[in-house]
Each structure stands twice: as structure tokens, then as C-alpha cells.
């Protein structure tokens, strides 16, 4: 059986065209949406990888910092490489800081302890 448009009216033809356009449009929207989703997926994954790398680097640096600040290591460098010695108890001088009298402060005097050799 052969179909032709000859028997259709203009309205019916217009409707058919609209339906066709809508179907094709919807298909394109769907495909476009899918493409956007795929693209977003790649970008999310890339961002996740970057985040993981940065977190990894952060952990590395934290551990490196903790390892380098090991007190036994610092003491070894001070003693062996810089020739420093621990002050004897009587070599220590306690320096008490008091606020100048012209500008009275409610804060209590604070102090620090220095070896005599530290005072320059």
C-alpha cells in the first residue's frame, strides 16, 4: 500500500511536521543532556583526582614536617653540627618583662629564660 500526502490537509501536514520537530528536538535535548552529563562526569573525576593528589601532598608535607621537627634530630644538629651545648642550671638567667610605667598595663609581667650566652 502506498501512502502519499496528497490526501492530507494542510493542518494535518503541519501537525505531523510539528510532531516530527518535537521528536527530533527532544532527541537532541536528550543527547545534549547526556553529553553534558558525560562531560561533567569527566570534570568531576578530574577534580576528584586533583583533590586526592593535593590531599596526598598535604599529608606528605605534614609527615615531613613532623619528621624534620623531631627533637632528637634538632638536638643532634645543634650539638654535632652547630657546636651548641645545653646550659648548666646556674648559667640560666630569667628575664622578666614588665610593661613600661608610662603605659600601665593590666597584664602580668611575662618572662623568658635565656642562657647567659644568648644575651647580646
Amino acid at each position: 500500500m502506498i501512502f502519499t500526502f496528497a490526501g492530507l490537509g494542510r493542518t494535518a501536514l503541519f501537525r505531523a511536521l510539528v510532531v516530527a520537530v518535537l521528536v527530533v528536538g527532544a532527541t537532541f535535548v536528550y543527547l545534549w543532556q547526556h553529553m553534558v552529563m558525560v562531560d561533567l562526569g569527566y570534570r568531576v573525576e578530574k577534580a576528584r583526582t586533583e583533590l586526592a593528589e593535593l590531599q596526598h601532598r598535604h599529608s606528605e608535607l605534614q609527615l615531613e614536617s613532623a619528621s624534620l621537627s623531631e627533637l632528637a634530630r634538632i638536638e643532634r644538629i645543634a650539638r654535632d653540627e652547630l657546636g651548641m651545648v645545653a646550659p648548666e642550671p646556674l648559667q640560666l638567667v630569667r628575664v622578666v618583662f614588665a610593661a613600661p610605667p608610662a603605659e600601665p598595663s593590666a597584664d602580668r609581667p611575662q618572662s623568658m629564660v635565656l642562657a647567659r650566652a644568648d644575651i647580646r
Binding site: P89, R94, V95, I119
Partner: peptide, 27 residues
């Protein structure tokens, strides 16, 4: 701090340079 610590009092705040005169007194 131990009672034996020599103590000097200076006007100022922690972190400042200790004046030379104070250093001499301490030494």
C-alpha cells in the same frame, strides 16, 4: 623556675632585644 635563677627585670615585651646594660648586669 628554680630559686637559683638569676632574674633581671626589663621594661618591654617578650621577643624584644635585651638591652646591653641588662645583659652586662646579668653576666
Amino acid at each position: 623556675h628554680p630559686r637559683t635563677d638569676r632574674t633581671v627585670v626589663v621594661a618591654g615585651e617578650p621577643g624584644m632585644a635585651v638591652p646591653a646594660a641588662t645583659a652586662e648586669r646579668a653576666n
